[in-house]
Amino acid sequence: PIEDLFTSLNRHIERSEFQQAVKVADQVLSIAPGDEDAMRCKVVALIKADNIDDALPTIQSSQKFPIDFNYFKAYCLYRQNNLEEALESLKSQENNPATMLLKSQILYRLGEMDACVDIYQKLQKSKIDSLEINFVAGLISAGRASE
């Protein structure tokens, strides 16, 4: 039954066995196509297995289901240095620490340092670990090291 598959999936996730997690997620999806939890697990496991090249087509193939994968899509595009498209995928997303961090990392790679630094400034009150490392990188690259 599907509950046993999810138990197995959960165990693989806990053990960071991401490739096996993908296989079990696929088993769930063969029984229950479009199952949101299984789809999310598959995409996240592919990303954590550093298999971005398979994560993106999985995301594309999910477009017929009502699941919002735009953050994951933007992240994968960013990892592939497809920066304009990555920004495009973030447009539909509400501002939260995740989307703001990703956007600032994309802007950094695009060389849009002032916009990048602006976001880190806004995120300062969110108490994100190691945020200052990227903030400082943005300031230095913007020629604003004195700040």
Binding site: I2, E3, F6, T7, L9, N10, I13, E36, D37, R40, C41, V44, A45, I47, K48, Y71, F72, Y75, Y78, P97, A98, L101, L102, Q105, Y108, I128, D129, S130, L131, I133, N134, V136, A137, I140, S141
Partner: peptide, 21 residues
């Protein structure tokens, strides 16, 4: 070049499967 961390990666999370098992 200054070091930039991939902080966005920390927000790629598995859903809770608590009520699916």
């Amino acid at each position: 070049n200054p070091i930039v961390l991939d902080l966005a990666y920390n927000y790629i999370d598995f859903p809770s499967l608590e009520n699916r098992m």
